[in-house]
Nucleic acid binder design. Sequence first.
DNA 1: CTGAATGTAAAGCGATCGTTTTACATGCGC
DNA 2: GCGCATGTAAAACGATCGCTTTACATTCAG
Lengths: 182, 182
Amino acid sequence: MDKRTDMIAAAARVFDAGGFRGIGVDGILAPSGASTRTLYKHFGSRDGLVLAVLEERHRDFMDRLARSGGDADPIGGLFDTLERWLVEHGARGCMLLRAQGEYAGANEDVVALVRRQKEEFEREIARRVEMALGSADTGLATQIWILFEGATAAASVADISVVGLAKRAAGVLVEDARGRSR
Amino acid sequence: MDKRTDMIAAAARVFDAGGFRGIGVDGILAPSGASTRTLYKHFGSRDGLVLAVLEERHRDFMDRLARSGGDADPIGGLFDTLERWLVEHGARGCMLLRAQGEYAGANEDVVALVRRQKEEFEREIARRVEMALGSADTGLATQIWILFEGATAAASVADISVVGLAKRAAGVLVEDARGRSR
DNA sequence: CTGAATGTAAAGCGATCGTTTTACATGCGC
DNA sequence: GCGCATGTAAAACGATCGCTTTACATTCAG
């Protein structure tokens, strides 16, 4: 298997478990058994690996979202996918937002990347809202997004049941929007 | 003025701007002009200062929430207070959750402190929900909490208007709960 | 005047940081 | 069998880390 992929997956687990800045390159590479030489050959720098991890993480989630189908319940499927993701990966808050917080004043590339990724995610939600409503509603889409980010954050201090509550809240908001346009 | 208070306030700004682990004690102390000697006299360690900053930050917000009154609109006042807070402090995500993410595998005291603080916050929301509804509704309270955390997170990548959208969503949920119990 | 309290300035502790470098092992196409 | 790509192992670079220590200045109550 590809060494580069191994390193990204192993580093993602390390960052997810203990943050990005609190560990050295040796600790990041140990789980994949890679040497520092290989790190700088593939990624150029420690921060290069961080960016690759964030790209991978975002792509992973967006792919799963696309694969989940959910044409029957486009909004509810959003939260079902989140719940399955959290069960598999553990709930430690959104890795992208955590990276943004840690690299705020230190690496603008990270901040810019996360912003772009969140915009892409919000567009996907808007697409699903239009699918559910029959017409676009950017305000509702942002509210669904807020519920999604809130559930992700809340699950890191409470239990996973918050995702189900967020899903139900989203349903109420969609129903309210439907009633308002009717 | 108290030097200890100065150090906490200055350190809070530093942590808020660039995370907790990515800067050394010299960088943390520089804005307050304190020496490392004074740091270890007052806080015992770098982590001791971190804990003091988190205590202060939580107490500040809870005090402002209590002072805001909001007996007329207990739930809406929650988001009005958040919006004023974000305008004053800037929107870089919840400092407590950010600290939890950075100290996850390194300092359990930080994780435990944040968990306690979030529980206290959720109880305050539950109190306000009961005030608005006339009876307790822990499910609704958690949903309001999710909207609150979501707005805080979303404001760090989008603009502050997300807080207003979260407030309106909370209003819809409260109205729905009122209709359901009627 | 004395002495305790509170502070800054600065040197130094061993450890660890991100990065580079040298040396060597392996597998594969030609 | 030669060359090249890809990998590990390990030493070393200067810089910085959290923390301790020594030395000295200021303030203020008794």
